[in-house]
């Protein structure tokens, strides 16, 4: 009885501590990026990457279950903060021709998932652009240009495509893209 009583607060404390650590790690990564290459990246739209910047926080702390379930059948469920709201609206309106495949959903699922994506879209996208491919955004290209990532990496069958975030970012599905966790497969 004594044991049970003591374990409870301990378990809560451990969970809280872990949450705190992961949150602050994400924050730290973000802060580092803010300073990184800030010169030369601001322009008429304001903000880095010509205004095509991913959200300040990508971690899916409260992931929508429908989104998780429906968007991870053929690829990982890409976290909403990777694109601006308008991209998600366009993408969800064209699921019958989703990058060459039919990915249609029933109307109620589509509505719920669109709302989740739009509500959690990038909060730092200032440009009037709305690409459908994450890889077409300026922040993505800048982070993955040939100075950062050797072109040979993309040819590695274990990477296969820049759409396979999780090949190098093991925490991609949770929105964890911190640079210190990147592991490029050999």
């Amino acid at each position: 009885m004594l044991k049970t009583d003591k374990k409870f607060p301990l378990a809560i404390a451990v969970v809280a501590l872990m949450l705190g650590i992961s949150l602050s790690a994400a924050q730290a990564d973000d802060d580092r990026e803010e300073g990184y290459r800030s010169a030369g990246n601001s322009d008429k739209h304001g903000g880095k990457y010509g205004g095509e910047n991913r959200g300040s926080s990508l971690q899916t702390i409260q992931a929508n279950a429908k989104w998780k379930q429906e968007c991870s059948n053929c690829h990982i469920a890409y976290v909403p903060g990777l694109l601006p709201a308008e991209s998600w609206r366009k993408l969800m309106a064209g699921l019958d021709k989703h990058f060459g495949s039919d990915a249609t959903l029933d109307a109620s699922d589509a509505k719920e998932i669109t709302a989740y994506l739009v509500d959690n879209a990038s909060n730092r996208w200032r440009a009037p652009t709305a690409p459908l491919r994450i890889t077409e955004s300026a922040w993505f290209k800048s982070k993955h240009d040939s100075h950062e990532i050797s072109p040979a990496v993309w040819k590695n069958p274990r990477v296969k495509s820049p759409a396979n975030c999780q090949a190098c970012h093991s925490g991609a599905e949770k929105g964890d893209f911190s640079e210190d966790k990147v592991r490029i497969p050999k």
Partner: peptide, 8 residues
């Protein structure tokens, strides 16, 4: 199986 496009 394996998705023909994504490899998933």
């Amino acid at each position: 199986g394996k998705h023909a496009d994504t490899g998933k």
